[in-house]
Design a protein around this nucleic acid. Sequence first.
DNA 1: CCAGTGATTCTCT
DNA 2: GAGAATCACTGGC
Length: 186
Amino acid sequence: MSLNDWLARDAVTVARDLIGARLLVDGVGGTIVETEAYDPADPASHSFGGPRPRNAAMFGPAGRAYVYRIYGAHWCFNIVCDRTRPGSAVLIRALEPTDGLGMMAQRRSTHDPRQLCSGPGKLCQALAIDKALDHAPLDAPPFVLEPGPPPAGVVIGARIGITKGTDTPWRFGLKGSPYLSRPFRQ
DNA sequence: CCAGTGATTCTCT
DNA sequence: GAGAATCACTGGC
């Protein structure tokens, strides 16, 4: 099964299965510990309401990046999936940093490993992800994306920072990880 | 808790 | 085109 076929499944499944995967950009990155799923029928999703200039990547092929700017200050990185439901993607919210710690520390102006990639904007800064990588394929440089072994435990909860779709439990996290953007409620 | 930040999109003309 | 609202966040109180 190719990476693109693996990513082409539905957003919720991919979001769950990405926990424990390895993500690098130019050799800098780590293990994915937190994700959220979005799909075109979901009022919280950028793809809700159809294609727009900003969200064009969400309606393109599976296995590409969707990168957008938020609050005029930060980048957010998504992986486009489900080719049967265009507009499906998974937001990568946090990593456990493993590779290129020095580079990340420099970009983030902190050496605290818990502060390097514990949020969608933070990890984009640490990995130098910006608009230039919108639409970029995940199976080619500068990206490396490798699914990992099934994690010991995955916790599930409501997504963060949205005002619609707040009852949809499409946030996934590595159980007990100290690198989450925020704790999961019990 | 809350201010900063500016692109994006919507709703009128 | 102009004006306004919204925003999948972060860092500093």
